[in-house]
Amino acid sequence: MTEKKPWYLSRTIWASIVTIIAGAGGLAGLPVEHVDRVATTDYLLQIVTALSGVAALLGRISATTRLI
């Protein structure tokens, strides 16, 4: 495992975030037993991937130096 990737592309990180939020929601009294955590993690990962793509595109469009 020598490849590196940004933290926000890690399924493990997002699954952990969903688990923490679900646990906190349960403590706060919100009904979270019917939440599909795998689907929620995939959904969040798709959002993050789309947003990072938009950020990369906008960054390249607004860049002031050329790529070699």
Score class of each variant (00 low, 15 high):
residue 15 A to T: 10
residue 15 A to D: 08
residue 32 V to E: 00
residue 23 G to W: 03
residue 30 L to I: 14
residue 6 P to K: 01
residue 25 G to W: 06
residue 19 T to Y: 09
residue 25 G to K: 04
residue 21 I to T: 14
residue 18 V to Y: 07
residue 27 L to Q: 11
residue 11 R to G: 10
residue 19 T to C: 04
residue 3 E to M: 01
residue 19 T to H: 10
residue 6 P to I: 12
residue 9 L to Y: 08
residue 25 G to F: 15
residue 11 R to Y: 15
residue 30 L to Q: 01
residue 13 I to F: 15
residue 32 V to Q: 00
residue 6 P to T: 09
residue 10 S to F: 05
residue 17 I to Y: 12
residue 7 W to N: 03
residue 25 G to N: 07
residue 11 R to T: 13
residue 15 A to G: 13
residue 3 E to L: 10
residue 4 K to R: 09
residue 29 G to I: 11
residue 7 W to Q: 04
residue 9 L to V: 06
residue 28 A to N: 05
residue 17 I to N: 06
residue 8 Y to E: 09
residue 2 T to L: 06
residue 6 P to F: 10
residue 15 A to R: 03
residue 28 A to I: 13
residue 5 K to Y: 15
residue 4 K to E: 07
residue 8 Y to G: 04
residue 24 A to T: 13
residue 6 P to M: 02
residue 10 S to N: 12
residue 17 I to E: 06
residue 31 P to C: 04
residue 16 S to Y: 12
residue 9 L to N: 03
residue 22 A to F: 07
residue 14 W to R: 01
residue 17 I to A: 13
residue 18 V to A: 08
residue 20 I to S: 13
residue 10 S to P: 11
residue 13 I to L: 11
residue 16 S to E: 12
residue 27 L to A: 14
residue 18 V to M: 03
residue 12 T to I: 12
residue 9 L to R: 03
residue 29 G to M: 02
residue 28 A to F: 15
residue 30 L to N: 03
residue 9 L to E: 08
residue 5 K to H: 11
residue 29 G to P: 13
residue 12 T to W: 09
residue 22 A to N: 05
residue 31 P to A: 07
residue 30 L to A: 12
residue 17 I to V: 15
residue 10 S to R: 06
residue 2 T to C: 04
residue 32 V to H: 00
residue 17 I to R: 03
residue 5 K to L: 15
residue 28 A to H: 03
residue 25 G to H: 09
residue 32 V to A: 00
residue 10 S to W: 02
residue 19 T to K: 02
residue 24 A to L: 10
residue 27 L to D: 10
residue 30 L to P: 01
residue 10 S to V: 05
residue 11 R to F: 14
residue 5 K to V: 15
residue 14 W to Q: 11
residue 2 T to Q: 04
residue 18 V to H: 02
residue 19 T to P: 05
residue 20 I to R: 05
residue 2 T to M: 03
residue 23 G to V: 14
residue 32 V to I: 14
residue 22 A to G: 04
